[in-house]
Every structure is written in C-alpha cells, then in structure tokens.
C-alpha cells in the first residue's frame, strides 16, 4: 500500500508540472526559423512535395540511417532471444484450423495489400506515407499470410536477402550522394524533375523504396520469429 501511495504522489507531482505546461502554452503564430527554411527551400532544393519526407530522407538522412539500424538491431536481438532452446516445429499444440472464407479472402487480399505498400513508399515524396508506413503495410500482408497458414515454411532466406541487400544499397546511395552531389545521402545526383511527378525529387523514391523493403523485411522477421515460438 505504501508503494501505491508513493506512486500516486509521484504521479501527482508530474501531473502538476504537466498542468502548468498546458496552461502556459501559447501556440506560435509564425513558423520558427528552421521550419520556415524547410518550407521555403524544400520545393526548389529537394523537389519533394512532402516536407516531412524531405526532412526524414535528406535534411536528417543520417538520423534515419541510424533509426533503420536500431530497428535492425531490435529484430536481430529478438531473433537471438527467441532462438535459444527453440524446439522442433512438430511439437506444436493443436490449433483450430482456419476457415475456408479466411483462406480464400487472404489469398485475394495479400497481393493487394503488398501493392498498396509499394504505392505508399514509392509515392512517399508526393502523398503522406513513405518507407516506414509502406514497410508496415507490407509486414501486415506477411502477417495475413502467417495467420491463414501458421505452418507455412516462411521464405526466410528471401526476407534475409531483401533486408541485407536493401541496407547495402541504401548506404551505397548515400555514398553516391557524397561523391556526386553535396554530401552523404544528398538526393541531387539524379535530376530533381518537376514537382508532383512520380520520377522527381532526385533519389528520394529510390531511397524510400529501399527503406520500405528493409523495414518491411525487419518487421516480417520479428513477426515470424514470434509466431515460430512454442506455445507454453
């Protein structure tokens, strides 16, 4: 009980700080300098219609590389943690079989979901979305496959190949930016094109495609690792 009281006291203190923060907050009427720079220069410099994409891929591209690495590490550690002492697959417990409706439905929908993922990351510089969202959509398609066919021997090698190749090409494109244009992950070694076309904004569609494939592969690895575990 003392512990719970302490917790409540702590929360009350934090709540007090939060209340003053909310009450004292006044929204800006103007963009701050950084945001104004991005808003003014993105269209001409980067050629991306989506400012968020421009920030994630180009202005803060190195951070994104780091983030993809963190995600990769998370997937790898998860695989390591779960791999120890994993027994054979045939020792599974009885699962309720999947109904025919869901099987047919998923076979129709999985290609569509995958194509939607491709749409989301290829159009990352024009519409909301991009590599991370598209990767998540692709992983959702993989999840539907796992759900309808739990014993399916998943194409682990294909996923691993996609993941590592996408990572290598991502760094390679970053280096091309360093040598052919202004700096690491600079997108302007390809023509910027007209604002709003699919092939515009230099290398951004390519980079986002690679990120999308990589993120999708990482999430798929996580999902299949978790679903391969033994029921306890």
């Amino acid at each position: 009980m003392v512990k719970r009281l302490l917790a409540l006291l702590l929360l009350a203190a934090i709540g007090g700080i939060f209340t003053t923060l909310v009450l004292g907050y006044m929204p800006d009427a103007e963009l701050n300098n950084t945001a104004r720079y991005y808003a003014d220069h993105t269209a001409a410099d980067i050629g991306s219609a989506n400012l968020v994409t421009a920030i994630v891929i180009t202005y803060r591209g190195l951070d994104t590389l780091g983030e993809v690495t963190v995600l990769f590490l998370a997937a790898a550690i998860l695989g390591l943690v779960l791999a120890r002492g994993r027994r054979q697959v045939q020792a599974r417990r009885e699962l309720t079989p999947v109904g025919e409706l869901l099987t047919t439905g998923s076979r129709v929908l999985v290609p569509l979901i995958m194509l939607l993922g491709v749409y989301v990351f290829v159009n990352g510089h024009l519409t909301p979305g991009g590599g991370f969202q598209g990767g998540a959509v692709i992983a959702s398609g993989v999840l539907l496959l796992l759900l309808t066919d739990p014993l399916r021997q998943f194409a682990h090698t294909l996923i691993a190949a996609v993941e590592s190749l996408a990572g290598v090409f991502y760094v390679a494109i970053g280096l091309m930016g360093l040598f052919l244009a202004g700096g690491f992950l600079d997108n302007r070694f390809l023509p910027i094109g007209t604002l709003g076309a699919l092939f515009s904004a230099g290398a951004i569609p390519i980079i986002y495609t690679l990120i999308g494939l990589k993120v999708g592969a990482e999430f798929s690895v996580m999902l299949s690792d978790l679903s391969d575990t033994e029921a306890l």
Binding site: L112, I113, L116, V120, P128, G129, Q133, V137
Partner: peptide
C-alpha cells in the same frame, strides 16, 4: 490515403 490504409 489514411482512410485507404484503414479500409484495407
């Protein structure tokens, strides 16, 4: 596009 993601 967000609604599209939800629909699917």
């Amino acid at each position: 596009d967000v609604a599209l993601i939800y629909a699917l």
